[in-house]
Nucleic acid binder design. Structure first.
Lengths: 186, 186
DNA sequence: CGAACCTTACTAACAGCTCAGTAAGTTTGA
DNA sequence: TCAAACTTACTGAGCTGTTAGTAAGGTTCG
């Protein structure tokens, strides 16, 4: 599954053959199919394994709530920068599953809905506590925050020499703190 | 090329065969190859045609400079929402070309560098005019703005029922105006 | 005539997947 | 204790379908 992750991340689901997955683990192609049944089975096994970790982390961040939770995004960026293949996997597979009939379309729909719920809860907690300004729509802000992280990551994956992902996230989080906080800091 | 655009957008470059492109225009596969030589030739023809329009629009927006330019992003969002296939094409092909050896890797690297330069110039113009606050790094902000638009569009493409792209862009642009403007508006 | 445009026919490579068989290890029963 | 029965984890061969691309030939039009 580690091999499949790396190959799916670099060549996409459609672009990787079972023969290459098999040869990189030192067995034959039917040997891999014995364990996962089909290629889609392998895909599901890989993404579900990783998604559980990712969503659990998102829930932990959301539980902190408000400004503390937002500041945790920087830690998440540091962790992500150390695992570019994992970020690439999700970016590549997302784009391969925009269409309704993609092999992981439903997974990604649910995945992003769950992530948005986590962020919405984070913002609402901050608003109730009087920590964050009340005139921002949590639903719209959640799309913005998740989208910004994904979009900046995409530019970093494409051109790591030109884009410093961690620096971009730090600057964005600073903006969020400045804009979302109830009382201006400076 | 319109057919290829739609197919590349929905099935990706790797996922579309020349036979399907050909059949949808009513000729055979070698008939298509006669015009574009290879499949990569067709890809280049499609993306270069559309990229010229896209970059010209970005330059026009950037020329306005400062707050007026930022407000133009809303108009861009309205236009994009009417052409989901075009947005999907670039999102899908970007993800297929993260790797150095992708058939359009170099194009996308240059494309995003050019877009970032346009946004940097837009911000710097506003700062020189005293319209935008001077303590934001234009390079980092450019990655953020382009990334946010891409990332929000991705969520919209994946799940149009759950994500209202135009509303998200309007909210984000409002945030930008509030945060980037030198004097707070409210 | 001759160039533009397209067809039919083909090739070599590769895709996912099935099937039959096998070697090794584990469990069960007298 | 020893062997039969069964499970696990594969291999090798092969099936069917599809891929991009080529070679050669023919039609249409100026």
């Amino acid at each position: 599954m580690d091999v499949a992750l790396t190959l799916f991340a670099s060549s996409g689901y459609r672009g990787t053959g079972m023969t290459e997955v098999a040869s990189q683990v030192g067995i034959t192609e039917p040997g891999v199919l014995y364990h996962f049944g089909t290629k889609v089975g392998l895909l599901h096994a890989v993404i579900e394994q990783r998604a559980k970790l990712s969503q659990a982390f998102a829930r932990d961040v959301a539980e902190q709530g408000g400004l503390a939770g937002i500041r945790e995004i920087v830690a998440l960026a540091h962790r992500s920068a150390r695992e570019p293949d994992l970020i690439k996997l999700f970016a590549v597979l997302l784009a391969e599953n925009f269409e309704d009939d993609g092999p992981a379309h439903d997974f990604f729909v649910e995945h992003y809905r769950a992530l948005r719920v986590s962020v919405v809860e984070l913002i609402e907690a901050g608003q109730l506590r009087g920590e964050l300004r009340a005139d921002v729509d949590p639903a719209l802000k959640a799309v913005e925050i998740l989208g910004t992280l994904d979009g900046m990551a995409n530019q970093w994956l494409l051109d790591p020499e030109a884009v410093d992902f961690v620096a971009c996230v730090e600057a964005y989080v600073a903006t969020l703190e400045r804009d979302l906080a109830l009382a201006p800091l400076s």
